[in-house]
Amino acid sequence: MANPQQLRGRIRSVENTRQITRTMEMVSTSKLKRAQDRVVATRPYAQALSDVIGDLYSPELAERFPLLRQPGDGAKCVALVLITSNRGLCGGFNSNLIKLARARIEQLEQKNVSVRLHLIGKKGIGYFKYIGQEIASAREDIGDKPTVEHAADVVQPLVEAFEREELDAVEVIFANFRSAMSTPPVNQRILPVEAPGARVNKSKSARAAGPVRVPNYILKPSAAEIVSSVLPMYVRNSMYRALVETAAAEHGARRTAMKSATDNAGDMIDSLRRVLNRARQAKITQEIAEIVGGADAS
């Protein structure tokens, strides 16, 4: 049995670790709260954009806009944007994202589609550098407070390449922030912009209850020009939302990971303390036995 001195040392060390993980949990909780507010605040904008595209969209317009070009199955080159966090200690968060990205790359390469990998976040960069995958671009300066400018920076070259028909699709792999506990990695295609026609029809019954839609707007300058300036906004915003959701999801994942680390440390302290008490008691019992034995002998 370990001696009490060693046990005391281990208990102290686990207590220190627990202190650290508990602090990290609390830090994540407060960051999560703010990140969550940012996620919620992006919704009206996204809703407004998709409403407008839905209102103005028509198949005739679609043929004229490069951003709506649907290459279908003939895609030759796809840009894959993977968003990961810059920091670790958040459980399986980053490895889940990387796993999904690898699966998608494999899937695309089997169809002879070349993949250009754009990485955001140190963890993804570190991994793909390690396995020696070719990386088209990498940036780790975005951190956990992404801005609209960051999103525009990332997406602008991709939009331009798509317009030049160098890319046939742009997909983003990020963590979908469903709740603090559920942040599954998802793959979203942001280019070509999905034709919203089908969506409008589907939600017609849902809309009937809402405010009556008036389709015949006075439009200035014209439907085509409005769509051509709203579509890039929509694409930029998809990227912005992916960044914001991933940032919130990271804090959620870290809080969960740190909470279980804190709980585990507590359990470990309990069992170490039990061993310590037993050892101490055994020692006392033994000493009494020796004293009694000594008294009997004399």
Binding site: L56, L219, K220
Partner: peptide, 19 residues
């Protein structure tokens, strides 16, 4: 500030959309 100059909206405006 519309793309081609200022535009004013008062209550009861017709359905309208501008850049």
């Amino acid at each position: 500030p519309a793309f081609d100059g200022e535009v004013g909206i008062l209550p009861g405006h017709a359905p309208f959309m501008t850049l």
